[in-house]
């Protein structure tokens, strides 16, 4: 049922972009030397750059992108609304708030899982609140208004926490938390995020059958043996774990979960079960591409990932609003 050629093509694209991410950086070294240093090691600082700087960055691009693409596809499938995007409706910003609180209070340093757990809690509260407010059919108006309020509140509280920090640099990093970046991440960040992303992805990929049934309506889905409360719980936990952990290490990157499912939906025949794995790969490709672009377009200027994804995503979002508006008229 899952379109294998599409998934294979997407996997190939992700593979190429992963390779590209490994080969782009301020240290100008030839691609062959770089890969030799990565795989075989050797003397000098190059293996260190490849293995400790570029490899974790590329892996995180993969994890963060897959989380966001999958989160967007799962939320949109459940709410049957193409505007449900984790970053836009406040899930990412709430996860960032959880992460910032954990880091500034020292909670994240006391327990090794403190940081992802706090981000997960932030994201989980946001998803649960949105599902509660938007209702089972996910009306666009309520969803977007609730999302705007939640984003604004989480963003403001994040700024407040950073402004209150005794650390003079914290307040200058509001942009990182609200826009996201993968610059100078290490394997420590990969180990923090990977287990939660894996668990969240497993939870969301398992939603396929339920979301397919839900396209027929709640009653039809229930009659097909889908337990909606369990589906909902699995969705909340899956989105919270994957998006929460990604945000904890890379900040809140918007629009990935909007653009990717939108582009791939026609290619999978609008079936949520097929859209989920395709969006995971598509999201990874988009974030890896954006992370390559921030290093090529303005090297050394600290361009944030979310700037690029918003430049692509915001016009599309407006287009979608315009279309939904016509449909609901």
């Amino acid at each position: 049922m899952i379109p294998r050629p599409l998934l294979a093509a997407l996997a190939l694209l992700v593979g190429l972009l992963f390779l590209g991410s490994l080969l782009v950086g301020p240290a100008a070294v030839g691609p062959l030397d770089s890969l030799r240093a990565l795989l075989l090691g050797g003397d000098g600082p190059l293996p260190l750059v490849m293995r400790e700087v570029r490899l974790p960055r590329a892996i995180l691009g993969l994890l963060v992108g897959a989380s966001l693409g999958l989160g967007g596809a799962a939320l949109q499938g459940y709410l049957r609304n193409p505007l449900a995007e984790p970053g836009l409706i406040g899930v990412g910003p709430s996860a960032a708030l959880g992460a910032v609180v954990a880091l500034q209070t020292g909670f994240a340093l006391d327990f090794s899982l403190g940081l992802p757990a706090a981000a997960l809690a932030g994201a989980g509260v946001a998803v649960a609140l949105l599902l509660l407010l938007a209702g089972p059919r996910g009306s666009s108006m309520t969803l977007i208004l609730a999302g705007i309020a939640l984003s604004a509140l989480a963003g403001a509280l994040t700024s407040l926490v950073l402004n209150l920090s005794p650390n003079p640099f914290a307040a200058t990093e509001i942009m990182f938390w609200l826009m996201g970046s993968l610059a100078d991440r290490s394997f420590a960040h990969v180990w923090v995020a990977a287990p939660f992303v894996a668990a969240g992805a497993w939870a969301m990929l398992g939603l396929g059958r339920g979301l397919d049934a839900l396209t027929l309506g709640e009653d039809a889905a229930a009659s097909l043996g889908i337990a909606l409360p369990r589906l909902r719980l699995r969705l909340v936990l899956g989105v919270a774990a994957a998006v929460g952990a990604s945000t904890a290490v890379a900040g809140s990157v918007g629009f990935v979960g909007l653009v990717v499912p939108h582009l791939l939906r026609p290619l999978v025949g609008a079936r949520p079960s097929a859209l989920l794995p395709a969006s995971a790969l598509g999201g990874a490709a988009m974030v890896l591409a954006a992370d390559i672009a921030v290093r090529l377009v303005l090297p050394g200027r600290g361009l944030q990932l979310g700037v690029l994804t918003a430049l692509v995503g915001a016009p599309l979002f407006l287009h979608l609003i315009f279309r939904t508006r016509r449909e609901f008229r």
């Binding site: 260190l48 400790e52 020292g106 340093l109 920090s165 640099f169 914290a170 200058t172 290490s186």
Partner: peptide, 20 residues
């Protein structure tokens, strides 16, 4: 180090730097 936490100081704790 400053009290609290910052991304800016996280840079200085990167393992690649410590190995340099």
């Amino acid at each position: 180090p400053w009290p609290g936490w910052s991304q800016a100081e996280e840079f200085l704790r990167h393992p690649a730097l410590a190995a340099t």
